[in-house]
Simulated scan of single mutants.
Amino acid sequence: MMWKKLFVSSLMGLLLSTGIKPVMAGTVLENIAKSGVFNVGTPLNLVPYAYYNEENQLDGFSIDIVKLIHKQLEQELGRKIELNFVEVNSLQEGFPKMMTGEIDIACNTVFTWERDKHIDFTLRYTISGIRLLLPKGKIPSDTSFAKQKIGIPPQTFVRDAIKLAYPNAVFVEVASLQEGITALKDGKIDALGGDSILLDGLRQQVDKDGFEQFPPFTEPSLAQYGVACVVPENNSSFLNIANYSIAKMMEGYLVKDPEMTELFNKWIGANGVVDVVSEESIELFFKSNIVNHEQIPFPKQ
């Protein structure tokens, strides 16, 4: 899901070593207007954000967010724009594609100060947190997890939060959540750390009734954060369109606009694909996100 932190020198070294030169001519918005194509980097198997549904159509919460941005782009540019999805599953794929203009935006990511040196973040479109996934009924009586093996995916913010919460655990690095769930099923680790929304999506793909998360959802997660999209730096016009689209979704949800409420509730909440975030948390998060922005009016229902 998330992009590992990368220093400018190493990023540029990667690009130059592969013969890739950053695109400098034209802003993202100018390039979209000229080409008529909006290129979106996305994974294809990341429940609930972006995955193929039962009808074999690319679907997901982030896909719906991108479609809102796409609709706003067409309104702003006054023309039809093709929406093109480019598979992006890793940092090594994502950064070069964004630097060269192959993709204009990518979602499902979390702000870190290091990442912010190289890319710009949109408004956050949901809240999530860090928890542990364990086999059902296997939460230890000693919830300090002392000497328990906890699988840690590559994201530094996940690793740091888990190590701070459980300093006496044994930490086992895993290359991905998919590798981690395999290790968990095979008994090589006792718990798998990660983003609670992604962990629940993974649970549903692997074994709906075989796993549970800790801390329980009645308690705070180990860390909380917003989930956002990222765009190339210094593209304020394009970023404004993306932010307006996300703010409109949040505003619509808060005023109970049917379209925006249905869009969000389809994915997150009691009747959504994942039910790991309370309605109260979502409302508070949305209010805090849009309080510093101009209100977007919706017709009274």
Rank of each mutant, 00 (worst) to 15 (best):
M250I: 12
D116M: 07
V277Y: 00
A175H: 07
I69H: 01
L184M: 09
E30H: 01
G252V: 09
G193F: 00
S62T: 08
L6M: 13
L222M: 12
R203F: 06
E76G: 05
D190T: 00
Y125I: 07
L134E: 05
F171S: 12
Q57W: 01
I63Q: 02
V66E: 11
V273N: 06
N31A: 07
G26Q: 04
W3V: 04
R131V: 08
I105V: 11
K163A: 05
V231L: 06
I241C: 03
G210C: 13
P48W: 06
T156I: 13
D207Y: 14
P153A: 09
C107M: 00
N240T: 02
D195K: 05
K117C: 12
V40Q: 08
K147W: 09
A223Y: 04
N265Y: 05
L14Q: 14
V37Q: 11
G194Q: 03
K188H: 15
N234P: 02
M249H: 04
I290R: 00
S141C: 06
L199H: 04
F7V: 15
G41E: 06
R124H: 10
P43Q: 04
S141K: 14
S9R: 09
Q224T: 12
L133W: 00
D116Q: 08
A228H: 13
I69Q: 01
L44A: 07
F298A: 04
